[in-house]
Structure formats: structure tokens, C-alpha cells
């Protein structure tokens, strides 16, 4: 397939960083050879790249690694305490499925994320989710710890915009973000999941993806 001149020009940064395949490279090199403007842009981008790569940064280094190891140890201790505690506390049997390290992290992350929407959170009556909070974790009324919807928000969506959509759809964040940046959401008591999903899908520019978690 033949590419237009405009399409080929878009490869200029990748000519500069040397990541084009032979065919694409030949195409843009032919353009640059006949166009002084493009040649000047290539030279300027090459200089920018050199400057950026030459820039020194003071990364945390061994101090950062020590901090990481300390917190990993702390988390391991917390996980072990949690497992030990759950074996002796009959009430915690209902949340046994939260024992794995990953799932425990999701529970911790969910609590942290709830802080993001704290303003809306404190301005409404308690939900079944809150009523069913257990001492060492939480479960939903049905015993399921995960939300009904898996949602990705637009990179440039503001916290305020996200909060407005969640309030409109009667949703709350119960977990996330995952390593892929996705959040798990549940509807508030009495709200309809499909209706909420529809509101999310219509929130262009704020919500990028909506999936039913139970599909």
C-alpha cells in the first residue's frame, strides 16, 4: 500500500531514533533528501534527542531500593498476619477468598481509590457495600469482592469530571486501578447496572471503555 507524503512525514521522529524498518526508512529518507524543511526538522529533532539523552537525573538509587525492600517486607508481614488472623477468626471465613497477595492488594487499592471520590462518598447514605464491611476487609452482599463493571477512564479526564459521571450513574469505585489502569465499579443500592453502563458509555472524553465484569 502506497503511503501519502503526509503519512510518511509522520515517521520523522522514528527516523531520528532509529526504530524504522528498512522500507519506511527508505521512504522518509527519500523525502528528506529533497526537502530542506524536513531536513532542518530532522536535524532539530536529532539535537533534541541528544540533549534529552545527555540529561542527567538523580534517581533514588540504593536508597530507593532499600525503601522498596523495606515496604515489601512490611507487606509480607501484613499478609502473613492477615492469613494467621483469618485462620483463628471464624467471622473472617467469609472473606477467605481475599487471602492471596494480589487480592489483598486490590482491597487496599480500593480503599485508597475511594479517597478520590470521598466528597461524593460522604454525601449520601450508606450502601449495602458499607454495611457489609468486615474488620479485616470487605465483601459485597452477595459475597463477591469485585465490581459489576470494569472501566477505563480517559487519560486527560479530571477527577471532577469522573466524579460527576459516577454520581450521575449512581456508581462507586470498589477496586483499582489495576496494572492496566482499569477500575472496578459497582452500582449503589437500588441502581441499575445496565443504565449505569449506558451513562458511562455516553460519557465521551471521560470514559474510554466499559465492560461487564461478569461477562
Amino acid at each position: 500500500m502506497t503511503r501519502s507524503r503526509e503519512e510518511i512525514e509522520l515517521d520523522l521522529p522514528f527516523l531520528v531514533n532509529g526504530t524504522l524498518d528498512a522500507e519506511a526508512r527508505a521512504e522518509i529518507e527519500a523525502l528528506v533528501a529533497d526537502d530542506a524543511r524536513l531536513a532542518a526538522e530532522r536535524d532539530a529533532l536529532a539535537t533534541i534527542r541528544r540533549e534529552m539523552q545527555a540529561e542527567e537525573v538523580n534517581a533514588p538509587g540504593e536508597f530507593g531500593l532499600a525503601r522498596l525492600m523495606r515496604d515489601v517486607d512490611r507487606q509480607s508481614v501484613r499478609d502473613a498476619d492477615y492469613r494467621a488472623g483469618s485462620e483463628t477468626d471464624g467471622r473472617r471465613g467469609v472473606i477467605a477468598q481475599l487471602r492471596s497477595r494480589t487480592t489483598l492488594w486490590q482491597a487496599v487499592a480500593a480503599v485508597a481509590v475511594l479517597g478520590i471520590v470521598a466528597q461524593s462518598y460522604f454525601m449520601r447514605p450508606p450502601t449495602s457495600f458499607e454495611v457489609n464491611v468486615a474488620p479485616a476487609g470487605y465483601v459485597l452482599a452477595g459475597g463477591e469482592a469485585r465490581g459489576a463493571l470494569v472501566v477505563g477512564f480517559a487519560a486527560d479526564a479530571t477527577e471532577a469530571a469522573i466524579r460527576d459521571v459516577l454520581l450521575d450513574a449512581e456508581l462507586e469505585i470498589v477496586a483499582g486501578p489495576s496494572a492496566l489502569g482499569l477500575y472496578r465499579l459497582d452500582v449503589l443500592e437500588g441502581a441499575d447496572v445496565e443504565n449505569a453502563a449506558g451513562i458511562l458509555r455516553s460519557a465521551e472524553g471521560i470514559v474510554e471503555s466499559v465492560e461487564n465484569a461478569r461477562n
Binding site: D71, V72, Q75, T102, W105
Partner: peptide, 9 residues
């Protein structure tokens, strides 16, 4: 820390 938590996945 995330890498530590989710590497298994």
C-alpha cells in the same frame, strides 16, 4: 510495589 504485587499475573 505494583510490580511486586501483580508480577504473578
Amino acid at each position: 510495589m505494583d510490580i511486586w504485587r501483580v508480577a504473578a499475573s
